[in-house]
Amino acid sequence: MEAANKTHQNDTVQPHKRKKQKEVAIFGNYRNYYTYRIDQGLEEDPRIKVMRKEWFEGKNCLDIGCNSGLITVTVAKKFGCEKILGIDIDSARVQDAYWNLRRIVKMSEKKKDQTVDKSKDDGTNGVTEPPEKTGRVESSGDSPDSYLFDRVSFQKDNIVLDWSIPGNKVYDTILCLSVTKWIHLNWGDEGLITLFSKVWRLLKPGGVFILEPQPWKSYISNRQVSEVASTNYKNLKIFPDQFQDILLDKIGFREIENLSSSLSGSKTGFNRPILALWK
């Protein structure tokens, strides 16, 4: 009887384990999206490796569907954008993006302090080579990356429905990575064409549009994420393998290059084409 009571007591103190609910993001606005896209051990998103400095250096850039802003900030830092704006439909992701921007700047400040401390230990008293010798010109702020606060910005916007194009506002380079499926499922073929048309109008002549479209099998996996998506999925007449022809023949882009041949390091299921299109 005593043994039975002990068993009963043990049963009552066992915590009830809740089954972790799968995150539902009807616009693709997943938290930590970039974290699970990248293989462990990589320092940066592999898509960055196929991008070219001349597309960004000293340029005014736009990142559509920036999510938590990691690509946006990395592009600004690595390639030296004059300005880059990241927009996302989810205000929570925009807040994450600003948090990541502050974190990255703070990390560079910490590395700078560690370098100074190390140089003091090795007898140089914190004296480093002047910029003309190193080729680096650092910000006068506390962090070598504090200039990013002036160059990188984020805002909540829906480019299909809300974002009106300013009369004279144009960009040298526009990024749209893994966004088309969510626009397509939520606003149908018309929404997709609206996206492509707005991008073309927002680009300067000679500007580059970097597009990563999701494949059709990805649509199948997400077609039931919402009732709207399910309905639109059944009515789609445009498919991802037609995007290139539409962008060239109907929207007006003059040249296209597939950048995917040198892409590696993405997790299974994310080996997608990356296209560069010129206006």
Results as ranks from 00 to 15, higher is better:
residue 1 M to F: 10
residue 1 M to A: 13
residue 4 A to C: 14
residue 7 T to V: 14
residue 11 D to E: 15
residue 13 V to L: 10
residue 18 R to L: 15
residue 19 K to V: 14
residue 20 K to Q: 11
residue 20 K to L: 13
residue 23 E to T: 14
residue 24 V to P: 03
residue 24 V to S: 03
residue 24 V to Q: 13
residue 25 A to R: 04
residue 29 N to A: 13
residue 29 N to S: 08
residue 29 N to K: 00
residue 30 Y to H: 13
residue 31 R to M: 04
residue 32 N to S: 05
residue 33 Y to F: 14
residue 37 R to K: 13
residue 39 D to N: 05
residue 41 G to F: 10
residue 42 L to K: 11
residue 42 L to H: 11
residue 45 D to Y: 12
residue 47 R to T: 13
residue 47 R to E: 07
residue 49 K to P: 00
residue 49 K to D: 13
residue 49 K to E: 12
residue 52 R to Q: 14
residue 53 K to S: 09
residue 53 K to A: 05
residue 54 E to W: 09
residue 56 F to I: 02
residue 56 F to H: 07
residue 57 E to A: 07
residue 58 G to K: 02
residue 59 K to H: 06
residue 67 N to Q: 02
residue 69 G to F: 09
residue 71 I to Q: 05
residue 73 V to E: 08
residue 75 V to D: 07
residue 76 A to N: 05
residue 79 F to M: 06
residue 80 G to H: 06
residue 85 L to N: 12
residue 86 G to Y: 02
residue 87 I to W: 00
residue 96 D to A: 06
residue 100 N to R: 01
residue 102 R to W: 15
residue 104 I to L: 12
residue 106 K to T: 07
residue 108 S to H: 14
residue 113 D to V: 07
residue 113 D to T: 12
residue 117 D to F: 01
residue 118 K to F: 14
residue 121 D to N: 03
residue 124 T to M: 06
residue 125 N to Q: 10
residue 127 V to P: 07
residue 129 E to T: 02
residue 130 P to C: 05
residue 131 P to K: 08
residue 137 V to L: 01
residue 141 G to R: 09
residue 141 G to E: 03
residue 142 D to G: 04
residue 142 D to S: 06
residue 149 F to E: 02
residue 150 D to I: 03
residue 155 Q to N: 02
residue 156 K to W: 00
residue 158 N to D: 12
residue 158 N to V: 13
residue 159 I to F: 01
residue 164 S to L: 07
residue 173 T to H: 05
residue 173 T to Y: 03
residue 174 I to G: 02
residue 176 C to N: 07
residue 178 S to W: 14
residue 179 V to F: 09
residue 180 T to L: 14
residue 186 N to S: 09
residue 186 N to M: 09
residue 187 W to V: 15
residue 187 W to T: 15
residue 189 D to H: 10
residue 193 I to Q: 07
residue 195 L to Y: 07
residue 199 V to W: 14
residue 199 V to Q: 10
residue 201 R to W: 03
residue 203 L to N: 00
residue 205 P to T: 01
residue 208 V to H: 09
residue 209 F to N: 12
residue 209 F to H: 11
residue 210 I to T: 14
residue 210 I to K: 04
residue 213 P to R: 08
residue 213 P to N: 05
residue 215 P to M: 11
residue 217 K to Y: 15
residue 218 S to W: 15
residue 219 Y to S: 06
residue 219 Y to I: 08
residue 221 S to H: 11
residue 222 N to T: 15
residue 224 Q to H: 10
residue 225 V to C: 01
residue 227 E to P: 00
residue 230 S to F: 05
residue 234 K to Q: 09
residue 236 L to F: 12
residue 238 I to N: 08
residue 238 I to S: 08
residue 240 P to M: 12
residue 241 D to V: 13
residue 244 Q to A: 14
residue 245 D to I: 06
residue 248 L to F: 04
residue 252 G to W: 11
residue 254 R to E: 13
residue 257 E to A: 10
residue 259 L to S: 11
residue 261 S to I: 04
residue 261 S to W: 13
residue 264 S to E: 04
residue 268 T to S: 04
residue 270 F to D: 00
residue 271 N to S: 02
residue 271 N to Q: 07
residue 273 P to V: 13
residue 273 P to R: 11
residue 278 W to L: 09
